[in-house]
Structure formats: structure tokens, C-alpha cells
Design a binder for these strands. Structure first.
Lengths: 185, 185
DNA sequence: CCATAATGAAACAACGGTGTTCCATAGCGG
DNA sequence: CCGCTATGGAACACCGTTGTTTCATTATGG
């Protein structure tokens, strides 16, 4: 029942969304002209697809939500201990790249844009880790989620500022996170 | 040799700087009108003290630098092991409050605004921790500094988003950081 | 090949922030 | 009390972004 949309239109729409993701990731206050340029498209055309800036943000948010849901699936959060699941989730999140940056700089509200049962997923992983004793019970589940995101940001910043390889940054980040959330002796 | 400045002027200047710190901390792109309002001062007066926005940012940066230098002194970074010094430094940084937020959101460039021998202080603390074996040698000193700042942000966000007390946030943050940087067994 | 869809360029008004000027007023100090 | 300093308010031009309209051009598909 979806409106019949020409292949050209969906391709243009995708190009604009992709450009918006990467442009807004590096500069949240980039102008619509910048986004249009990055998409190789006139500003007029951009407005034809997304009437207002807020409409574009909505589109970007949906795009990000899709990526996050896919990452959740790949992380197989029910396998192994809670800590193992958390570290796998961390790997998958790290691979989200620009989507991660958009969440950090507040362009998109990931929790708000996610389908209900997905938004609390990381909290549930941490609670499972508390139950099976693989995560430090001295740190509340919500706090551990906080730590996960701050670690992700840390790894991301490390890549940007020191030109580290994606792989090296991820390994450092996982080492640090593992130590941070492990039960104390 | 400094120009003779009336008490009124220095007081007004301080009021504007204080308002700028708190206003820009919560919204980096706040207008000068917002800052003036927060200072209880006309926009005209603000411009009389800081001709351009960039001048105000310079003033704010100097203000922050002073606060950071004072924090460094209180942290007694040469006492105890490197890890102990790092955790003390973390405590003092956490107390910087809005200054911390200004550094996070990029309004001020702390490293750039600090006197030369102060800017690399946290790196040297981490290197000392590597030497005395109190910090994980698997994480480079620069990375550990990165982790310190991301942890600070984490604690800050925890307070903002969950209404946690300053004390509780700091304790959680120190527990997490300690686990993150401790040598692995 | 021709009708329609899709696009780009230009021009426009509106808006908000910035930096400046001018003038009136309040307040402190001699 | 007088004068100088500090201030606030209003008005102004300037600039970049936004959202809209118009018109000409391209390309897609039946």
C-alpha cells in the first residue's frame, strides 16, 4: 500500500540521508546547503524531499534506528555471560561509526527513536551480568550503560585525535571497559 | 603597571564571566543576549567589556585555566603512586563543574589555554603510574588521559540525567576508573 | 518521440544573532 | 552639589541560514 515511488526518488533520498548522516556527524550545526553539497544535490532538491530541517533529522533518526537494531541482532546479547554480551554489544556499537557520533553530539535521540523492546536492551544485558556475577554489582545497570557509551566515545575520540586505526582503538576500548565493569576482587 | 581599574568595573567583568561560564556550559551556542541576561546586564554593557564573542571566549578560557591550575595544585600529583595521583586528579577535576562542561562541549580549549608545564601534567602522572606499576601498562599514557576525561564526562552526565548527588556520582566514577586503569592480573 | 518526472539555479522575504552608534539615566566620588 | 563613570535601551546595518517560488533544463519511461 506504500505510494508508488520511482527508483530515482528512493536513490536520491538515500543519497541525501547518507550525506546528512556523515555531514551532521562531523558538524551538528552544518547548514542544509552543506548537506546538499555533500549529497551532490541542489538545495532545492533537498527541500523537495525534506521540507524542513526537522524533517531531515527525523529521516536521519530513522536511518540510525535501523542501524542500531541491526547491530543489536548481530551482538547476540543472549549468548554467554552478561559481560561477554556487553563487550560484544560494544564491538557492534563501535562499528556504527557516524551513527555513534550523531548520538554523542545530540543530533539524534537514539533511545527515543528505537522500537520499545530495543531501547532498554543494554540495560537488560547489564542486569543479566549482575545476576550471573560477571559484572560488578557495585555499579548500577544504568551506570554501566553510561560507562559503555562513554567508553565508546573515548575510543572514537582516540581515533579522531590520534589517527589510531579502528582496530587498535577498539582493542584498547574493550580492554579498558572490561576492567571497568569486571567484578572487584 | 596594570591600568587602574575601578572596583565597579572588575565586579561587572567578573559577573559577566561567571554568567558566561554557566550559560555556555549548558548551551555552547547561547546568544550573547542570553549571557547578558544571565549576568543581569545589558547587551551593550557586555560588548563594552568584550567587544566580540571571541573576546568573551578568551576571557572564559583564562578563567577556566586559573581553575584548572588551582585544581592541579590541590591534587598533589607527586604524592603516592601514579594511580593514586590520577584518582586524586579525577576528584579535583570533577569539582570543576561548569569548567568541565565547557571543556567537554569544546567552548574552551583547556590544553591550549594552560601554561606550558601544566598542560601535560595528567600525561606525566600516567607515565609515573606505568613506571611504578600502579597503572595498566597495556594502555598508553595518552589513552589513560582519554579515559580519565571520558569517565569525568560519564559522571557528569550521570548527575545531569539521573539527578544523582555529586558525591554518589563521584564515588561511582572513581570505582569505575580505578578498575579501568588498574594493572591486569 | 513525447509527456511527465526530476532536478538545479536564482531570487526572494523572513528570521535571529552580531556588532555598532547614539542618547538618556543612574550612581559614585570629590 | 557637580561631574565623571558606568550603564541600559533603542535603533541600525550586516550576515548567514531557512524556507519558498519561479523558471529552465535534463532524463526517464511509455
Amino acid at each position: 500500500m506504500t505510494a508508488p515511488v520511482s527508483g530515482v526518488r528512493t536513490r536520491t533520498r538515500q543519497a541525501i540521508l547518507a550525506a546528512a548522516v556523515s555531514t551532521l556527524a562531523s558538524d551538528p550545526s552544518a547548514s542544509l546547503g552543506d548537506v546538499a553539497d555533500a549529497a551532490g544535490v541542489g538545495r532545492t532538491t533537498l527541500h523537495r524531499y525534506f521540507a524542513e530541517r526537522s524533517d531531515l533529522v527525523v529521516g536521519v533518526t530513522e536511518e540510525c534506528a535501523r542501524a542500531v537494531v541491526a547491530a543489536h541482532a548481530r551482538a547476540r546479547v543472549l549468548d554467554g555471560t552478561g559481560r561477554e554480551a556487553l563487550l560484544r554489544l560494544c564491538r557492534e556499537y563501535f562499528d556504527l561509526g557516524d551513527v555513534l557520533a550523531l548520538a554523542f553530539n545530540g543530533v539524534v535521540d537514539l533511545d527515543g527513536g528505537l522500537p520499545g523492546d530495543e531501547s532498554g536492551l543494554s540495560v537488560r544485558v547489564c542486569e543479566r551480568g549482575h545476576d550471573d556475577g560477571s559484572l560488578d554489582r557495585g555499579q548500577p545497570a544504568l551506570w554501566l550503560v553510561n560507562v559503555l557509551w562513554c567508553s565508546l566515545y573515548s575510543g572514537w575520540a582516540w581515533m579522531q585525535e590520534h589517527g589510531a586505526s579502528r582496530h587498535d582503538a577498539l582493542e584498547l576500548l574493550l580492554r579498558t571497559l572490561d576492567g571497568a565493569v569486571r567484578p572487584r576482587d
